[in-house]
């Protein structure tokens, strides 16, 4: 075991897979010699060679399209899109090509690519370095969407994603690259080294795609979250002293519906949290599923806490962010129904 922050854990996952499988190649803007703007690929070119980890032109369409072609050859490309906000020029290659290649070719060709991309706000990145576009990809049949919340999970899930024979969108919550964020933006950041989940094996291990993680057991309400919001949810739950069950979804597609269903049937209440904008966000899907499957167990309306339906503002970032106040009010409201 070594103490790693999330970037180091991701780097270790990539390094492990490159060493195990010659077909794993990394490509993206600034990922080669420099090692990536967030340092996720630091040292990999030097260690594994220029044809295994290389810089690309600034063309997300080209990066994804080339990765699809490399996968058709038989490789396992792991393209990096520098910020999730930049992914849109590559959308056609993801939606119409990578996601549907297995289907349209009756499995003669597949697209075993893992698209890594930092996402989410809370870093004063403004509207083009803060977005959470995950629900766009969950809407596309044929794509898997994975979002880790700790260094340990990030490495284990990334290795599973790379070994997966389907295209995987791997969104990395960049706000928590260096340490978990509780939503209290005015408090100093604590590094990952203070937390158990920064204990990461240097060797290969996997965390299965499609399995959620119950990070806090409880009876009063089920809280569904992923990425940065898992830590914010935990902090708010502790602050309010609510006996909540906090579930880190880890994977949005395929979703671990069994864990969600069992928890909501137990607690009778469900609070859904994400940083992404509200309308047609993944919370809408979660809310519908919980309603369809747990309606007769629900004791209160399902609550959603999300970002607002605006572009991510720069100066008003903390007014936008679904932090402790917004979550706290929703939590009080949903557990308040207990006594009413």
């Amino acid at each position: 075991m070594t103490t790693m922050n999330m970037i180091e854990a991701i780097n270790s996952g990539l390094d492990n897979m490159m060493a195990r499988d010659d077909d794993v190649v990394i490509m993206g803007e600034d990922v080669g010699y420099f090692g990536g703007v967030f340092r996720a690929t630091a040292g990999l070119q030097e260690k594994h060679g220029k044809t295994r980890c290389f810089d690309t032109p600034i063309s997300e369409c080209g990066i994804i399209g080339v990765a699809v072609g490399m996968a058709a050859y038989g490789m396992r490309p792991v393209p990096e899109i520098q910020f999730a906000d930049y992914i849109y020029p590559g959308l056609d290659q993801l939606v119409s090509e990578a996601a549907r290649l297995r289907y349209r070719s009756a499995a003669e060709f597949t697209s075993a690519i893992t698209v890594r991309s930092p996402f989410g706000g809370g870093i004063f990145g403004g509207q083009t370095h803060s977005q959470s576009p995950e629900s766009m990809f969950t809407h596309v049949c044929g794509l898997k969407t994975v979002i880790p919340s700790t260094p340990y999970d990030a490495k284990g899930l990334l290795i599973s994603a790379i070994e997966d024979n389907d295209p995987v969108m791997f969104f990395e919550p960049k706000r928590i690259y260096n340490g978990p964020f509780t939503g209290y933006y005015d408090k100093p950041v604590e590094p990952w080294s203070k937390f158990e989940s920064s204990e990461v094996p240097e060797d290969y291990y996997k965390i299965p795609i499609g399995k959620a993680n119950i990070v806090r057991e409880g009876e009063a309400v089920t809280v569904l979250a992923y990425g940065t919001m898992v830590h914010v949810a935990n902090a708010v739950v502790e602050e309010h002293g609510v006996d909540a069950e906090v579930i880190d979804l880890r994977t949005l597609v395929p979703l671990d519906i069994e864990t969600i269903e069992a928890s909501v049937k137990k607690t009778g209440r469900c609070l859904i949290i994400h940083e992404a904008t509200r309308t047609s966000g993944f919370g809408a899907e979660l809310s519908a599923l919980v309603q369809e499957r747990c309606f007769y167990h629900l004791e209160a309306p399902i609550e959603r806490v999300t970002g607002f339906d605006t572009p991510y503002p720069h100066s008003l970032e903390w007014a936008y962010f679904p932090g402790p106040v917004r979550i706290g009010e929703a939590l009080e409201k949903i557990v308040g129904e207990l006594t009413s």
């Binding site: 399209g65 699809v68 072609g69 490399m70 050859y73 038989g74 290659q93 290649l101 349209r104």
Partner: peptide
């Protein structure tokens, strides 16, 4: 919109020119 892996004929897409970067990727591989 044929496809034949055996004959080195990639699955045809209805979306135009998407095969261009894919072909380059295959050639790079």
């Amino acid at each position: 919109m044929y496809c034949s892996r055996r004959l080195g004929f990639f699955s045809i897409s209805g979306n135009l020119a998407t095969q261009y970067p894919q072909a380059v990727g295959w050639a790079m591989a």
